[in-house]
């Protein structure tokens, strides 16, 4: 049945996650269950920095503030379907947290299409989803590729000739803690309830550690 299609897409991604998860779920039985995929050991992205277009291009390190979480997304502003869907889900997830929790979660989006996404455009776009969000943009293709690789993200922008450029990107949201460890990643299609639940677990853990 045709109506199954988006579901099949989600389920294939979920199967992928489960396949990964079964290899990595060797932690204690009392650990709270999270929906997102956790790689072990958690990749270290603390050394990475990208220019923050909303802050005059000042280097922004992909590491959360103490006790907080940083959500990182690789996308582009002319993305009609996947990015706005994910942004909307993230916004719903964040709004279901307490005000204190919301204050500890920051959002950063890295444009994978810097030739079309100007500093100004990207900043407006990011801030319309998250007023305190970070708009990360580099024109250095090597730097962008290295940043994406550190998160395990892939992307590609192919000139579409007369038509729209053909854009490919990993539709995951990455959750980074205050030590700059990539703690969790959510595939496209993760519900806002699951995101919120995972965020609560990680935020509670950060309080316990502080």
């Amino acid at each position: 049945m045709k109506a199954d299609r988006p579901l099949r897409l989600v389920s294939s991604v979920v199967c992928l996650v489960l396949a990964f998860a079964s290899c990595t779920s060797n932690r204690g039985a009392d650990a709270p269950t999270m929906t997102g995929l956790a790689l072990e050991p958690a990749p270290d992205v603390s050394a990475l920095s990208l220019p923050d277009a909303g802050n005059g291009g000042a280097p922004f390190r992909t590491r959360a503030a103490p006790g907080g979480l940083l959500l990182v997304y690789f996308g582009y502003t002319s993305c009609p379907d996947v990015c706005p869907t994910t942004m909307s889900d993230l916004r719903v997830a964040e709004s279901s947290l307490t005000e204190a929790q919301q204050g500890r979660v920051r959002f950063a989006m890295v444009t994978i299409d810097p030739s079309r996404d100007s500093d100004e455009l990207l900043t407006r776009y990011v801030r319309s989803f998250a007023a305190d969000g970070h708009a990360l943009r580099t024109e250095d293709a090597t730097e962008l590729r290295a940043a994406a690789a550190a998160f395990g993200a892939d992307f590609g922008v192919k000139d579409g000739g007369m038509g729209q450029p053909e854009v490919l990107h990993t539709g995951w949201v990455y959750v980074v803690d205050d030590r700059g460890r990539l703690r969790l990643q959510w595939p496209f299609g993760t519900t806002s309830e699951d995101m919120a639940s995972d965020l609560r677990v990680l935020l509670t853990e950060a309080v316990g550690r502080a």
Partner: peptide, 13 residues
Amino acid sequence: TVVAGGGMGSMTM
């Protein structure tokens, strides 16, 4: 929207 080949959850249209 389709999942592109090559893994890493890449999506394209």
